[in-house]
Design a protein around this nucleic acid. Sequence first.
DNA 1: CATAACGCTTACGTTAACGTCAAGTAACAA
DNA 2: TTGTTACTTGACGTTAACGTAAGCGTTATG
Lengths: 151, 151
Amino acid sequence: MPHSASRTWTISELAEEFSVTARALRFYEDKGLLNPARHGQTRVFSATDRARLRLILRGKRVGFSLEEIREMLDLESITKGSPQHLGVWMKRFRARIEVLKQQRRDIEDAIEELEAGCAWMEARQADLEPSEELKSRARAFEALARARLEH
Amino acid sequence: MPHSASRTWTISELAEEFSVTARALRFYEDKGLLNPARHGQTRVFSATDRARLRLILRGKRVGFSLEEIREMLDLESITKGSPQHLGVWMKRFRARIEVLKQQRRDIEDAIEELEAGCAWMEARQADLEPSEELKSRARAFEALARARLEH
DNA sequence: CATAACGCTTACGTTAACGTCAAGTAACAA
DNA sequence: TTGTTACTTGACGTTAACGTAAGCGTTATG
């Protein structure tokens, strides 16, 4: 048993580490996403709880609702289910994968546009000796900006 | 002037095309994201309005709030602003780019996990002649599943 | 020993993004 | 004329994900 496996955290330690509030952690417990041990009535978070929290927050970042995250975190019910039950989960997973891939495309497009926008602003702001490369990116942005509202 | 430039849409045509409700479109107008023309008191959407709607929905998919989208759609106020104003926008853009890149990483991780999960379920479900590749992906998922709750 | 500092529960408040009526108008069909 | 359909403007309801505040117990510190 390595040291990290036996280490525990208080609610505010975890809250600070992951930049969330203690209220949020209690809320996640309320909703069944976390299940920290208790010492008296004080919550004691294990390394496992901490790992679950990491997954919860990542899930949130990619657009899962807390309810969806709760279901997915419950590996037991997935692995122990009947073959039919398994089929339901596979459908859900596949559908979600498609959504995520679309999201990734959207994000890549958005990044491109924002970067072109930055380049354009840099060119504007400098207005002194704009490099050829900057001017080219700026032209790209202007083209994008026009294209955005046409077709 | 191509034909598509003069074509117009009713609120329910657009709503159906983009799988949103008419209520949502009115809401977007209320919030200043859309500005369709009127024929009498009936809304008439142009190709430009339609393009804006496409941008709005993509913005939503990548996590922008309607208020943020409204600001970004207002190119005028960005391009016409003072150099200082421009600086503010550049900061916002850059910050948002970082968020988007993190989001992309999260999404890629999530896709991997979900795909591994699918492979694992397939192997379980078949239980007959599981191919070497499937078995390998299944093992990968089991490793992932364990790793998820450790460390 | 008092007064922070930290934790707990209970409960009501808040915001975004619409949903869901209600009540009315304008266009067209039978 | 009378439906029927599509559109309009309010106005209030809803859900998720917490925020915020009240009130109370426990531990550490000057």
